[in-house]
Amino acid sequence: MVRAITRLGEKTIEQLEHLGHLTVFLMTVISKLFVFPFRYRAVLQQLYFIGAKSTFVIFLASITIGLALGLNLYVELSRLGVQDRLGTAVSLSIVRELGPVITALMVMGRAGSAICAEVGIMRSDEQLDALECMAIDPFKFLMVPKFWATLISVPLLVAIADVIGVFGGYIAGVVIFDVPYGAYWQGVYTSIDWQHLNMGLIKSLVFALVIVWVATGKGFLLHLDKAGVYGAEGVSRVTTQAVVMGSILILFFNFLVSAFMVA
């Protein structure tokens, strides 16, 4: 019993310590986010990797979500005789919740894991030390471009996901079922206002920060990992941790932002 409690305490302290390191890491990056010179070229490369290459996955994810949402909501709404309101229901769910969350989870899984593995390998290969020894700040050289690219990419991807998702709902409601297309679009246009768009934007920025923070931070702190395994094994374990932790944080912050903005 005492042993169990001691062990729990040990684990808690370990986790708190880790969280502390991650926080220091985040603060360091943020303090260097606006420092000259700005690395356009590196940001561009990261934009390509994080943003452009995610577009197709986001397209697939959001169209299927829109379709499924359209089908399900149509069945329920037509039971009440208000299938004309499908546009409202679909667009509100997508713009406020699903668009940002689905996009963030996809980006975490696709780009976040790759970023974490990349930084982790750089740590275990001593590439980060090599940067230090070349008097190149790894934060400015590596982290800052990744942060900027993610902060730019995710809101754009969320906007794409929103539009595609609403279009998916349109296919389900109007093309497959019998919702008048005017009613659908009117529902979309009249129900969405700047408040909902604002929520979508705030969420996408928060999620972007979570994604890039957890991904780069977990990789960067590979050497402090308690299991103490370097190399490929350590990288793969840290990457898994990053994806799990990032996804949970995304869902948690989704709830938090919703709660704050509704209240």
């Binding site: 561009l44 452009a52 754009l156 979309v188 969405i192």
Partner: peptide, 26 residues
């Protein structure tokens, strides 16, 4: 690289402005 990033940004901005102007009535 530049072409795809440009394309991505254009598509993203089109989506943003569509939402803002058509849906958000900005």
């Amino acid at each position: 690289l530049e072409f795809f990033v440009g394309l991505f940004v254009i598509i993203g901005l089109v989506a943003v402005s569509y939402m803002a102007i058509k849906m958000g009535d900005v």
